[in-house]
């Protein structure tokens, strides 16, 4: 079998790529996409450990995460819509009202 470290490294790499997107992207939709990527990295982790421990709980959890990610994106897009309405752009660097 493939040593589990590879799966974990893959998940880590995907997570960091997604994180880079979160930190760098300006458009809100790309931001959401990067967040999705990070969640999928976590899913890989769950499924990998489910396989290696022979416990289906990991797969169940991954199923949860996928569905809830979808739900979260739905809400997120709704929020982006409101954001666009108030600020005119979907640029996440524009709304900086909650600051000192």
């Amino acid at each position: 079998m493939v040593p589990i470290e590879w799966y974990l490294l893959l998940a880590t790499a995907m997570f960091c790529i997604g994180l880079f997107g979160v930190l760098t992207r300006r458009d809100a939709l790309y931001f959401l996409m990067s967040v999705e990527l990070m969640m999928n990295a976590a899913n890989i982790n769950f499924v990998a450990f489910a396989l290696y421990y022979g416990d289906l709980t990991g797969q169940v959890f991954a199923l949860f995460v996928i569905a809830l990610a979808a739900a979260e994106v739905a809400i997120g897009i709704g929020i982006i819509l409101v954001l666009y309405r108030n600020f005119g752009v979907t640029d996440v660097t524009v709304p900086t009202e909650m600051r000192w």
Partner: peptide, 17 residues
């Protein structure tokens, strides 16, 4: 110190990282 709180989400994420 309060100038850390820029209101910019990306920077918050950076700090989290």
């Amino acid at each position: 110190v309060r100038q850390v709180q820029t209101g910019l989400v990306s920077q918050y994420a950076l700090l989290l990282t």
